[in-house]
Simulated scan of single mutants.
Amino acid sequence: MTEKKVLGILAIVFGGVGLVFSWVPFINNMAFILAVVGLVLGIIAIVTNRKSKKTLALIGTVISAISIVIVLATQSSYSNQLDKAFDGSSSSNSKKTKAEKASNKTTNDSKDPSKSKWTYKDDTFKAGILTYKFTKSEVRDSSEDGKKVLVLYADVTNNTDDEQDPSNIYMVMHAYQKTDTSNKSLNPGMVAYDADYNNPLQSQEDALNNKLLGKKTASVVMIYSLENENPVTVKFDNADYNTIGEKQYNVK
């Protein structure tokens, strides 16, 4: 008997789209849903074609299943990377006995910045080993002709004795602006050069991208390319990608 192809084709489409975006952080949450839909359609197609060929149904089911596996593996990998980037847990106490660990747990946790709770309050984002105090915001001309950027100024403090990377904030800080059709996630941007072809914010951008020494504070900037003049909502996540605070900026 001839294979009924509609469900099999749909399974391939949903599974294929899920596979394409399965490795992209954040977006792969949607890819996971598409892959699950593709898997369900593929299974239904197999059942429907139980007495005939099942080529497309099997292909769609396999692709969808692979997509789901990749999404789960990718999310686990990015979560581990984020934990390492911000928390940098040390193994220096690994040789302590269980009794010593139990007796010193409260004291050690209170002194270890990576154990502290992540919060956003009063323009201050406490992200474990790094603290960002936002001081002001402004709209500037973009390096792209006819566009603007939102510039957020902050003082970042390294709460540890080791060097840290302040630019990791872009992994847990996201800006959104509504367009005619969606609430779009904004991309990092660049300010326009001055009359002497210099970047007026070069020192702050360098401070964001350079390693910050232990117990030091530096002035940095985060820059987002604007789509229009609608307000921008900036959201702050913790290490598990859960939003813990947000602030709205007017850009007119």
Rank of each mutant, 00 (worst) to 15 (best):
S137H: 15
N242D: 15
L213W: 04
A57D: 02
T97H: 12
N104L: 10
M171L: 11
V69E: 07
S167I: 08
I59D: 04
L82P: 01
Q164Y: 06
Y120V: 02
T61V: 05
M171E: 07
D237G: 00
D161S: 13
K53F: 12
G38L: 02
I63V: 14
D194T: 06
I9L: 12
Q164F: 03
T119Y: 07
N108P: 00
F86S: 03
N183H: 09
S52W: 03
Y176M: 11
N210W: 09
G15T: 10
A31C: 09
A45P: 11
K133A: 15
T243V: 14
I44L: 15
Q204M: 13
S114D: 11
F32T: 09
V139M: 13
K147M: 03
E163D: 11
K115C: 03
G42L: 14
D122T: 10
L10M: 15
R140T: 04
K111R: 11
M173H: 04
V156W: 02
V62Y: 01
Y120A: 03
L58E: 10
Q202H: 10
N159W: 03
Q177S: 11
A127F: 11
W23N: 09
L212Q: 10
E205K: 01
T61H: 04
N159L: 08
V151S: 09
K136A: 15
Q164C: 04
W118K: 05
P113I: 02
N158H: 07
W118S: 04
T160I: 04
A99M: 05
D165V: 04
N242T: 11
A73P: 07
K211Q: 07
S22C: 15
Y176G: 05
K235D: 06
L212Y: 10
K53D: 15
E227T: 06
T124Y: 00
